[in-house]
Design a protein around this nucleic acid. Structure first.
Lengths: 117, 117
DNA sequence: ATCATACGCAACCTCCTGGTTGCATATTAC
DNA sequence: GTAATATGCAACCAGGAGGTTGCGTATGAT
């Protein structure tokens, strides 16, 4: 296994994170995610209350979240109930952690380099 | 100060996070961020090597990152050197943490509710 | 049986995004 | 001074994203 810097696996993880961030990168959608986070599984209708767009728009956004793996919807009677899928959220969070951590290392290296002059 | 659930401040934090996620939600851009994280400040030219798009495209992406507050570029002679701006990255990470945490609470509540039946 | 509710599908529209190419400009190298 | 390098600016283009409206359909309530 190659050393810590820039492994294939890490590059793949980063590429995989992009769609998740893209899914989170819309205000309406991020609000949906936040609401699902604190109010638990919710139907499309209930999610539409409080969102300032049409039910159709909400449905579309939920579909996008589903494709990104961030949420899942199941039919219950005549309503479809959506819930968060925490795994990809965690992965995304870890990606950010890695990048920030690397940046700290980089800054330390640069400082050391400058001080050698 | 209001209690922990859904404060104005938190809502604002979430809304503010969306543009950051949007900026990270593009593969080319996320790769740039990752590279800046591990290789430190880099010029546009050096960032273009290794990116599979034009220098112009890279420049545009850097501009987007700048608007989102994620990176900053300074002129040094004839080249412009870009570096990461870790604060918004941290904020975004914290937003995800909050959502995940809330989700855990929600699940716990639901489990308790179901068991009461 | 009828009515209301909750939803999906499809068409459509507008605007933004990611990308390119061409040209102009400032800086460094020779 | 001249050539090469590093970048910015502007125009342009194709496609996708977010949104709406209209309609159809399944489920639940009365």
């Amino acid at each position: 296994m190659s050393p810590s810097r820039s492994s294939r696996a890490e590059a793949a993880a980063i590429d995989g994170a992009a769609p998740v961030f893209a899914a989170l990168g819309d205000q309406t959608r991020l609000r949906l995610v936040a609401r699902l986070g604190r109010e638990g599984p919710l139907s499309v209708a209930r999610l539409t209350e409080g969102a300032d767009v049409t039910r159709q728009a909400v449905s579309k956004h939920l579909r996008v979240l589903e494709v990104a793996g961030l949420a899942r919807g199941v039919r219950q009677g005549r309503e479809q109930v959506w819930q968060l899928q925490p795994a990809p959220l965690e992965d995304a969070r870890r990606s950010l952690e890695r990048i920030a951590e690397r940046w700290d290392e980089t800054l330390a290296r640069l400082r050391a380099f400058v001080e050698e002059e």
